[in-house]
Simulated scan of single mutants.
Amino acid sequence: MNSITVITGGSRGIGAATARRLAHAGHDIAFGYRRDHAAAAAVLADIHAAGRRGVALPADTTDPDQVTALFDAAADLGDLTGLVNNAGVTSPIGPFVDLDPDHLRHVVDVNLIGYVLCAQQAARRMNAGAAIVNVSSAAATLGSPGEYIHYAAVKAATDTLTTGLAKELAPRGIRVNAVAPGVIRTDIHTSSGQPDRPDRAATRIPLGRAGEPDEIAGAIAWLLSPDASYTTGAVLRIAGGL
């Protein structure tokens, strides 16, 4: 079976690393991204260099029409076999009482509504043997006090989405799992106002360092592979011991 995988947030960080990893594993890739055309072009070039087909499409995952367009683009490559629900945002780090309602809505819209819309499209189009991987966070169980409790709460919802959808889609032979990264060295920390957070957090991580995007991409690739054929409803924690 030819592997056709959709990745959201595929131009940077975990999404970009996953696109490259899956291309080398034999997947054709359709990925969405928000605005960095140069970064998207670089990822697409690497997919093609790996000998795989690829398409990159600007896509706001909170917009149902744009989500549909991304999955339609993937359909041009063939029958959908995988989804990596990865597009996510944080907001400025700070006390819970100072949370801006607009930031709250944006975090919920992208990290939860976007995941649901993409999972819906995938579930409508997938057949037996396909798989979904949701990118959650170790924050879901740590709570992220003093940083972004609302983000942690939304990631806990991602875990619940994973559990419920895994049970609903299992009779159709579709698997649904999640990865829960800890502190990973990506530019998402810049958007939260603390680009040095991975280095500062290293002292409280049992392994003594932040993780790298490739370390998450490897886990995602495994969950999409036949090696994980009896794995569904799992949340795989990749957080250096946190």
Rank of each mutant, 00 (worst) to 15 (best):
T186K: 11
I188G: 07
I174S: 00
T158I: 15
K167C: 02
D159C: 02
S191P: 02
R175Y: 01
V116G: 05
D187H: 00
D199P: 01
A210D: 12
R125E: 10
R185T: 05
R185L: 08
Y148M: 15
R185G: 03
A123D: 06
G211R: 14
I132A: 08
P195Q: 08
A166Q: 07
G193W: 15
R209G: 01
I174N: 01
L169V: 01
R172V: 05
P195I: 07
T158Y: 04
C118R: 08
S192C: 08
H150P: 03
A139S: 15
V176R: 03
T186E: 05
A210T: 01
A139T: 07
T190S: 14
G211Q: 08
A122D: 01
S136G: 14
A139H: 12
P198Q: 11
D214G: 03
D187K: 02
K155E: 14
A178M: 09
R175E: 05
V133L: 04
G129Q: 03
C118N: 02
S136K: 10
T203M: 10
Q194N: 13
A152F: 09
A130H: 03
A130L: 04
S191C: 06
T186G: 09
G208T: 08
D196K: 13
K155H: 10
E168Y: 06
I149C: 13
R197A: 15
A210S: 12
P206F: 10
R125H: 00
I216K: 04
Y115H: 14
E215D: 09
A157P: 14
E215W: 05
T158R: 00
M126H: 03
L207N: 10
D159L: 08
V133N: 00
P145L: 09
K167I: 05
R209F: 05
P195H: 13
P171F: 07
D187C: 01
G143N: 12
R200L: 10
I188Y: 07
R125M: 05
E212A: 05
A123Q: 13
A130M: 03
L142S: 12
H150I: 00
E147T: 13
Y115A: 15
L169A: 01
A178G: 06
L161K: 00
R125S: 02
I205F: 00
Q194A: 12
D187F: 00
S137C: 09
K155T: 04
R204F: 04
N177L: 01
A128H: 09
E215N: 06
A152M: 02
R197Q: 12
R200H: 10
A122N: 01
I184M: 11
L207Q: 14
E147F: 05
I149A: 15
V176S: 03
E168K: 04
I174G: 00
M126N: 03
G146W: 14
A152H: 05
L142M: 13
A180C: 15
R185K: 11
H150F: 09
I216G: 03
G193Q: 10
I132M: 11
Q120F: 11
A123Y: 02
P145Q: 07
A152C: 08
T160I: 08
L142H: 10
T186L: 07
D187E: 15
A152P: 13
A152I: 00
H150D: 14
